[in-house]
């Protein structure tokens, strides 16, 4: 079985984003970029499936400008076998991403697609579910455990009330949540090896997919900052302020 893992290149989670002065978006120039942390968890899970003998090959795919090849190299350094880069604008929408991934699935025939449940830049939480719809596959979203047995997968989902266990038919899309695993670091020798692993490049046109945006960004703004608060000296003062000043207890 092949495992397909879409990986997104996003602003590193430690970076405090800045909104552009013309309100067209956030500043991406000279900002540290990294693989979406949820996608790292997806790569890790794919590698574990291969190491357990459930999967034979792990393919990382990334959609975006030329720099996305770095993100694919990161996945290859973690242990993925090969990469596919699809050239597209940085801010391509989830629906278009899902359509491109559907075309890749048609070429590669993976038994499972593992993907982060959301990207930490646009916070959309859509791509996996959309891909499942387009393929007519089952979806196991927000997964904190995954067990594959033959043509079924058992997924434990993190839901608002706790945990939900479902069983889904394979092939399937599984979107991964934080507690599924802890991704490994790439070792230096593996980073060197990754440079020699195969990485194909395609365009949206090659795949016959229309990626024109459906939404128009009117403006991007900074949220209103909270007014500065005060430090209180002790618990008595805190309770007094909450009762008499803020009047919340």
């Amino acid at each position: 079985m092949k495992v397909l893992v879409p990986v997104k290149r996003v602003i590193d989670y430690n970076v405090k984003v800045r909104v552009k002065a013309d309100q067209s978006g956030v500043e991406l120039a000279n900002v540290k970029m990294a693989m979406n942390p949820f996608d790292e968890i997806a790569v890790e899970q794919a590698l574990r499936l291969r190491e357990a003998g459930t999967a034979e090959e792990v393919i990382a795919v990334s959609i975006g400008p030329a720099q996305n090849q770095e993100t694919i190299r990161t996945a290859l350094a973690m242990g993925a076998d090969r990469g596919i880069h699809i050239e597209a604008p940085h801010d391509i929408e989830p629906l278009a991403v899902a359509k491109l991934l559907k075309a890749v699935v048609a070429q590669e025939n993976p038994g499972i697609v593992l993907v982060g449940k959301q990207a930490i830049d646009d916070d959309c939480n859509q791509t996996g579910q959309m891909l499942a719809a387009l393929l007519g596959w089952a979806q196991g979203t927000f997964a904190s455990a995954l067990e594959i047995a033959g043509d079924k997968a058992k997924v434990i989902r993190e839901v608002d009330g706790g945990l939900e266990h479902i069983e889904i038919n394979m092939p399937a899309i599984v979107t991964v949540d934080l507690r599924l695993n802890e991704p490994r670091y790439a070792s230096l020798p593996n980073i060197m090896k990754a440079k020699k692993k195969p990485l194909d490049s395609l365009t949206a046109g090659d795949l016959g997919v229309d990626i024109a945006p459906r939404l128009t960004i009117v403006k991007v703004e900074e949220p209103t900052a909270r007014a500065a608060g005060i430090k209180v000296g002790d618990v008595q003062e805190l309770v007094s302020k909450l009762k008499n000043e803020a009047k919340v207890i």
């Binding site: 984003v17 959309c124 959309m130 128009t216 960004i217 991007v220 949220p223």
Partner: peptide
């Protein structure tokens, strides 16, 4: 294309939503 997690409605086609963990607010029209 879905519009996720809206926090404000400007009109029937235009919505505000947080991005980057709420460190920016994006207004989009559909």
């Amino acid at each position: 294309m879905q519009i996720s997690d809206i926090i404000k409605i400007d009109d029937a086609n235009t919505f505000q939503r947080p991005i980057y963990a709420g460190n920016a607010l994006s207004t989009v029209s559909s």
